[in-house]
Design a protein around this nucleic acid. Structure first.
Length: 699
RNA sequence: GGGCGGUUAGCUCAGCGGUAGAGCACUGCAUUCACAUUGCAGGGGUCAUAGGUUCAAAUCCUAUACCGCCCACCA
């Protein structure tokens, strides 16, 4: 068979992917063809981190998919019953926002449509776009079992969510209460702490005089000054607090002051939570709109006056002139009014971190709201223990700290959201839906059929390896660990590989809105999926970040071409005689070519390469393995050995050529599956399998 | 404010106690014999800075400076 001179990925990849899909070897039922397979009763399962139905493939997904595919393909060749479960996440707020945005183009809001109609639209969106990203995973060569694809709002999945909720409820861990929560005025919903993003903002510290209700003795100040970053919340002040040890204010404790503009009389109280070093050492207390203030309020039995509502506007609890103003307007007017009354002592520049919604970047308000909470103390203990005892391991290990720090300081989880797209809270009279992460937390269990006692659950749970990004270690990974333990008694996975964050070459975050992203599909189109995969893998050297450069993909393409042409050479060389060398799975299986076969330099190097690649992959050192394979194949095999065979025609040389090529193809297959499969299909070997994908992995 | 990671050739990164390496880029030569997406040869680095440990430090320790990320109720 004549191979073209240059490898043409565009002509090969779809064809090869179809070959694989037709073979059914992506499913664990079909890939156990070898009788001599010592691993045939062992399973190896990965569940994909389900991408949001809003998105399309970005470099983070590509990186994530490449790693998982390398792992699963190697295990499959080792004879494990491998299962890689794909799927998508309904991504509550994110998806709802996308659909709302579309609606806005027609000048409508979701409230114009009503809940039912709006949800129909979201489902339509899901049907239309939900699988796009999964199809893009196919482009990159992902060997998922597509027949087992799941969506977090499938009917069965909803059953799992309901079961989990009711289980917690029965245990008394779920409660409803009015608490000060993070509120996104744009999305009109509560958010958990993990759903906030902090952004630095240049603002001011306003120093405001609060006049004392009773005039003090001559010579004393007749007011107390507080410093605040949020003057507008003074409308809801119900106390002034100072550090109990602060000598400056000792004699004022217990005195009353008048809240300017509001004319409410409030008390000066003492509380340990106040830091005498900051500002003036006196702080206004607004229990309705600040967590620390809320805490102080609880201790001192302060009234909670809500002056900001769910739309980010000033409520009727505030004086008339400010009512219905947006927070920002109210702030400006209040500062002006204070100035006019001579109560504004000074304004300082002040830079601080302000919370924003992680889905829409709107400024977060803290306000009292009736929400559902999940008690976390016992669940956190489970998750801590799993990592503490080494049942769940993070790679790299230092990410365990992020996980543990969060769990040690855990607060109860606000699980209700006031949006429409999601799992409804299974309690009558509640229209709220669950935090999208409540359902994601059940992913490894639910995709395998839990709470039903399915065969899949029995066979493939717990899974082995989770490959994910570090920004969802707590949001997702920690919650999967305690969910898995609570509902099955088993950790949902053993190893958690935290992938590097893909940055631009300049070291900036890749972002769609900034236009700094690189579309992996463009790379695939331009260089081929294998080149893209190899380029990515080559760069996976264990750093926390990865400044992405296309140069590596260029390298990947060159390497694939080298692989292609070396294979052409070997095939030409072999066809110089009629006799096809008898190459078996093991080096020793090559008959009739004498001792020289095993003792040749190239065979020794091949052997070292096999050992090295196995060791690296066992330790998840993907980049190192790729480098080793590159060096061996290009420099040892092509530059050295292959050059020296050009004037040789003996059988032994041919056997070594074919054997080394075949072994290299096997080792390279997890990295560059398409081209290796395409070449394998052309090899004149005995006992040829239907696909390289299920050939025996070299050990 | 706390924590984590980074700072090595023009660029992206390995090396982590014993005479500086790879890919890409660059220079010269070769060439239609698997591959020009090639081969051979080569140029290029006081390994962020300052101290310290050691016979020996890019590599260990301590500071400092930038860069990135995570966490945090200093109003």
């Amino acid at each position: 068979m004549e191979l073209p001179k240059a490898y043409e990925p565009q002509k090969t990849e779809d064809k090869i992917y179809q070959l694989w899909e037709k073979s059914d070897f992506f499913s664990p039922e079909a890939n156990q063809s070898r009788a001599d397979n010592p691993n045939k009763n062992k399973t190896y399962t990965i569940v994909i981190p389900p991408p949001n139905v809003t998105g399309s493939l970005h470099m983070g997904h590509a990186l994530n998919a490449v790693i998982q595919d390398i792992l699963i393909r190697k295990k499959r060749m080792e004879g494990f019953r491998t299962l890689w479960v794909p799927g998508t996440d309904h991504a509550g707020i994110a998806t709802q926002n996308v659909v709302e945005k579309n609606l806005k183009k027609e000048g409508k809001t979701r409230f114009d449509l009503g809940r039912e109609k709006f949800l129909e639209l979201v489902w339509q969106w899901k049907e239309e776009y939900g699988n796009i990203i999964l199809n893009q995973f196919k482009k990159i060569g992902a060997s998922c079992d597509w027949s087992r694809a799941r969506f977090t709002m499938d009917k069965d999945y909803a059953k799992a969510v309901e079961t989990a909720f009711l289980h917690y409820h029965e245990k008394g861990w779920i409660y409803q209460g009015k608490r000060v929560v993070n509120w996104c005025p744009r999305c009109a919903t509560s958010l958990s702490d993990l759903e906030l993003e902090h952004q630095e903002e240049k603002s001011h510290l306003w120093y405001i005089q609060y006049p004392l209700a009773l005039r003090q003795a001559q010579g004393d100040d007749n007011f107390i000054i507080v410093a605040t970053t949020r003057p507008e919340t003074m409308l809801g002040d119900t106390a002034i607090a100072v550090d109990p040890h602060d000598k400056r204010y000792k004699k004022l404790i217990g005195q009353k002051v008048i809240v300017p503009l509001v004319n409410r009389e409030i008390e000066i109280i003492a509380d340990e939570l106040v830091d005498e070093e900051f500002g003036t050492g006196a702080v206004k207390v607004t229990p309705a709109h600040d967590l620390t203030d809320y805490e102080i309020g609880q201790k001192h039995n302060l009234a909670i006056i809500q002056v900001i509502d769910e739309k980010g506007k000033i409520t009727k609890e505030a004086p008339l002139p400010y009512q219905d103003m947006k927070v920002k307007e109210a702030r400006e007017k209040i500062v002006e009014d204070l100035k006019a009354q001579g109560l504004l002592e000074k304004i300082e520049d002040y830079t601080h971190q302000v919370p924003k919604c992680y889905r829409c970047a709107a400024g977060i308000e803290l306000l009292p709201s009736l929400q559902w909470f999940l008690k976390m103390s016992e669940l956190a203990k489970l998750a801590i223990k799993a990592v503490g005892e080494g049942k769940v391991k993070f790679i790299p290990k230092n990410f365990e700290k992020i996980y543990l720090d969060w769990l040690y300081n855990i607060k109860d989880w606000c699980i209700s959201r006031q949006i429409w797209w999601g799992h409804k809270i299974p309690i009558k009279g509640t229209d709220d839906v669950l935090d999208t992460w409540f359902s994601s937390a059940l992913w490894p269990l639910a995709v395998l059929g839990w709470p039903q006692k399915t065969d899949d659950l029995k066979t493939f749970y717990p899974t082995q390896t989770l490959v994910t990004a570090r920004d969802i270690i707590n949001l997702w990974v920690a919650r999967m660990v305690f969910s898995g333990l609570e509902f099955s008694g088993k950790e949902p996975f053993q190893d958690v590989i935290i992938t590097p964050t893909v940055l631009t070459k300049e070291g900036k975050r890749m972002s769609k809105s900034l236009g700094t992203g690189i579309d992996p599909l463009n790379l695939i189109e331009k260089y081929g999926a294998d080149a893209t995969r190899f380029g990515i893998a080559f760069q996976l050297m264990g750093g926390q970040d990865m400044k992405f450069t296309e140069d590596n993909i260029v390298m990947g393409r060159k390497f694939c071409n080298k692989l292609w042409n070396a294979s052409r050479f070997v095939l030409m060389k072999i066809s110089e005689t009629d006799k096809t060398p008898d190459v078996n799975e093991k080096t020793s299986g090559v008959k009739g070519f004498g001792e020289g076969f095993r003792k040749s330099l190239i065979m020794e190097k091949l052997d070292r390469t096999i050992k090295s690649v196995n060791k690296d992959l066992d330790n998840y050192q993907f980049g190192q393995a790729a480098h080793t394979l590159y060096d061996f194949f290009w420099h040892d095999f092509c530059d050295q050995f292959l050059e020296r065979t050009k004037d040789k025609k003996d059988g032994q040389t041919k056997a070594i050529l074919l054997h080394t090529l075949l072994t290299s193809l096997k080792l390279l297959h997890p990295f560059v599956p398409f081209i290796t499969e395409e070449i394998y299909q052309q090899l004149p070997i005995e006992n040829k399998k239907k696909c390289l994908m299920i050939e025996k992995w070299p050990e």
